[in-house]
Each structure stands twice: as structure tokens, then as C-alpha cells.
């Protein structure tokens, strides 16, 4: 259970996250959506303890993320940020292996090696395992980083706009993968997304943010309504049902 209460994060006079209360039950895929500047990524970074809060608390399974020792939390919660530019030349296998750091502390056991092999297989990266990251395409590199956070073996996996810079084919593959991580591996996946239709198609719960607060939380069917979407995006969107799936289309 991820519990956010009264979370505030301000940059100067701007409160980017302005009093968020949120409870996310374990399991499944939760998407956080909202217009640019709604505070989605900032909230995710606060939950992942990458940013200090200016007020409020975040707990994961009862552990306050900003007070619990980093190595304890690293076995429960992993996060992948948006821009993962590495200056270090590492092979895919090395990178994924470092996902085991919270467990191995640099002395990998056969169990750690097994996790690495499984993560590489899960993301179909075996063929690239010994290539350097700078020799891969954007989609392959993104998969390598996802393999790393999955390999960390945490119950909670947080991802900040993992579809950035991915074409349609790779974006769909990535969302299917996150779905499988939740369904087959039992991970709790929390993902910040841009596209409301992608969020509706692959999530169990959608959290909508606007101006630093949560304005809606619920299953996709409750979100995909013209009045709800108007509150979130300040935009007229018509919701069509195609093959039984809701699709929001802006009114021209």
C-alpha cells in the first residue's frame, strides 16, 4: 500500500504538488495522468524519495519513504526516471545486474545471477545482453532500464513516462510488458503517462492530477467520461467506444 497524505512540494512560490492525499492498493497497474505541469512526475519523484517533500508524508507498506534507510527501501520500491542518460559505458547485462545491488551489495550470488537472466529474458534482451548501451536503439535502451528496475525485485515499481521517445510499436510493447509485470509477476506498477487513451487501455486504476492536486481516482471506465475529462484537461473530449474500449477524441 502506497499512502500519500498532505504531500506538498514547492519550487519557490509555486506549489507543484499542493496537498495530495492518495492511497494506492497493492497489485495492478496504476496510471497517473494529467496536463503538463500538473505535478505528476514531481509526485512520483516524491513517492520514490528522489525529492524531499515540503510537507506531508509518503509511506510504502507503512514505511515513511523519507525516513526509512535507503537500502531497506531499495528492496521494496524501485523507480525509473524519464531521462536516463548514462555517461558510463555499461553493457546491458552489467546494467541489469546493478539492479540487484540492494540485495548483492556488489557480491552477486547465483540467485542474483538468476534474477538477471530472468529479467533479460522477460524483456527479450538476451540477444543484446553483451552490447553496450550506447550501441542500442532508444527502444532497446529503454527496455534495458526497465529490466534493471524489474531485476531489483521490488514489490513496487514506479516509472516516469516510460513511453517517451518510443514509437507506437514500442510504446504498445512497453505497456503490455508493464501489464505482464503486474499480472504475471505480481508487481505493483505505478506509471506516469501522457496519453489518456493508453492509460485507459492498460490500467486498473487511473489517477488524474491537475494543478498539483488529485482531481479524480478510479477505474478507467469512470475516467473516460466527457465531464470528468473536461475537469482534468479543460478540454472538450468526446468518448467513443471502439471494440468495447473507451477512446477519448478531442472535438475539432
Amino acid at each position: 500500500m502506497i499512502r500519500v497524505s498532505g504531500a506538498v512540494k514547492a519550487y519557490g512560490a509555486t506549489r507543484v504538488v499542493d496537498g495530495v492525499d492518495l492511497e494506492l492498493a497493492p497489485g495492478g497497474v496504476t496510471s497517473i495522468i494529467g496536463p503538463n505541469g500538473a505535478g505528476k512526475s514531481t509526485l512520483l519523484s516524491c513517492v520514490a524519495r528522489l525529492l524531499e517533500l515540503d510537507g506531508g508524508t509518503v509511506t510504502v507498506d507503512g514505511l515513511d519513504v523519507h525516513r526509512t534507510p535507503g537500502d531497506v527501501l531499495a528492496r521494496r520500491l524501485s523507480v525509473l526516471r524519464q531521462d536516463n542518460h548514462l555517461t558510463a559505458r555499461l553493457t546491458v547485462r552489467d546494467l541489469v545486474g546493478f539492479g540487484r545491488y540492494p540485495w548483492s551489495k556488489g557480491r552477486p550470488t547465483p540467485d542474483d545471477e538468476r534474477h538477471v537472466v530472468e529479467a533479460l529474458a522477460f524483456l527479450e534482451l538476451e540477444a543484446f545482453a553483451d552490447r553496450y548501451l550506447d550501441e542500442l536503439s532508444g527502444g532497446q535502451r529503454q527496455r534495458a532500464f526497465v529490466a534493471m528496475v524489474l531485476c531489483q525485485g521490488t514489490d513496487y515499481v514506479l516509472l516516469d513516462e516510460p513511453l517517451n521517445n518510443l514509437d507506437l510499436r514500442h510504446a504498445v510493447a512497453m505497456m503490455r510488458l508493464l501489464r505482464r509485470a503486474a499480472d504475471e509477476l505480481g508487481r505493483t506498477v505505478v506509471v506516469v503517462l501522457h496519453d489518456v487513451n493508453v492509460a485507459a487501455a492498460y490500467s486498473d486504476v487511473v489517477v488524474a492530477m491537475r494543478d498539483g492536486v488529485v482531481v479524480h481516482q478510479g477505474p478507467p471506465s469512470q475516467l473516460m467520461r466527457t465531464d470528468v475529462l473536461r475537469d482534468v484537461y479543460d478540454l472538450e473530449l468526446t468518448v467513443h467506444h471502439l471494440d468495447g474500449r473507451p477512446v477519448a477524441v478531442p472535438v475539432l
Binding site: V117, A119, A121, F122, A129, L185, R187
Partner: peptide, 15 residues
């Protein structure tokens, strides 16, 4: 929790 491979992983999986 362990990562179940999507496809069977042969024992020779390390490149």
C-alpha cells in the same frame, strides 16, 4: 518474489 521468465530459459542463457 521472483521473475518468472516469459519464455523458457535454457540453462545456457548467459551469452
Amino acid at each position: 518474489m521472483t521473475l518468472a521468465p516469459a519464455r523458457p530459459v535454457t540453462p545456457t542463457a548467459p551469452a
